[in-house]
Design a protein around this nucleic acid. Structure first.
Lengths: 110, 110
DNA sequence: ATAGTTACCTTGAACTAAAAGGTAAATATT
DNA sequence: AATATTTACCTTTTAGTTCAAGGTAACTAT
C-alpha cells in the first residue's frame, strides 16, 4: 500500500491542472475540489500537491498568476499561458503514447 | 525534456514485467527486448530499470528466480508467483482507475 | 585478433507525489 | 458571544521511482 509514489500518478497532477486551467482561470483551493469532480472522485490531489505545482508551473511560464480581491477574501487566480498550452499538448501526447503502449502490451499478453 | 522521472511512467515497468512473466518465464536481458516488442518500441526499459526491479519483485515474493545453464551460458529465469499475480491484478486495477479518471476529465474539459 | 552481442549487475542523480504541519480570515452553528 | 467549520493560502520532510552511466565477463562472428 504505497502512500507516496503511487503507481501511474507521475505527471497526472500537472496534466489535470493544465487541462482545467486551459478552460478558464481558477484558484488553488478551487482546483483541489474540481479535480475530484472531473475525475468522479477517482483522483484526489491534496493542497501539498496543488500549491507547489502551481508555483512551479508559474515559474516555468506555463501559468499566469493574478491575485484578486473577491469580496473580503484574497485569492490567487491562475490561467494557462500559450506556453502552458504547448506543455499541455506535449503531456497529452506522452499520455497517449504510454497508454497506447500499455494497451498494445495487454493485447499481446492475453 | 525530463531525463529522469518522465511523466506517466511510475509503475509502468512493474506492470509490464508482471504481465510478461505471468505468461511464462523469461530472463532479464530477454525482457529488455520483449518490452520494446510488445509496446511497438514506444517503451524501452534499460537494464538499470529491469534488473533492480526483478530483484525487488523477487524479494517481495512476486517472482521466483531460477538460475539455469543454457549451453555454456548462465541465465536467471524469472516467473510470476501466485502472489505476483495478485500484485498484477492490483496494478491492473490501479491502471484502469487512473486512465478512466483521465478519460473522464478529458471529456469534461473539451 | 577484434568487434559486437549476450548477460549479468550497481551506483548516483534528478525528480515527484504525498503527508503532515502551519497561518489566518470568513462563515455557520450553538 | 463563543465555538467550530470551512475557505484559502503555504512550506517542509519523506519515501520512492526511473534513468543514465559505468562495470564485468563470456560467447560469437568477422
Amino acid at each position: 500500500m504505497p502512500k507516496t509514489n503511487p503507481p501511474f500518478m507521475t505527471g497526472v497532477p500537472e496534466l489535470l491542472l493544465l487541462r482545467l486551467l486551459a478552460n478558464g482561470q481558477m484558484y488553488g483551493y478551487q482546483l483541489v475540489r474540481q479535480v475530484q469532480l472531473v475525475t468522479d472522485n477517482a483522483i484526489s490531489l491534496g493542497e501539498g500537491v496543488i500549491y507547489p505545482m502551481l508555483h512551479g508551473l508559474e515559474k516555468a511560464g506555463h501559468l499566469h498568476a493574478e491575485r484578486k480581491q473577491v469580496g473580503a477574501r484574497s485569492r490567487v487566480y491562475y490561467e494557462c499561458t500559450p506556453k502552458g498550452r504547448k506543455r499541455l499538448a506535449a503531456l497529452e501526447g506522452e499520455w497517449r503514447r504510454i497508454s497506447d503502449a500499455l494497451a498494445a502490451s495487454a493485447a499481446v499478453a492475453s
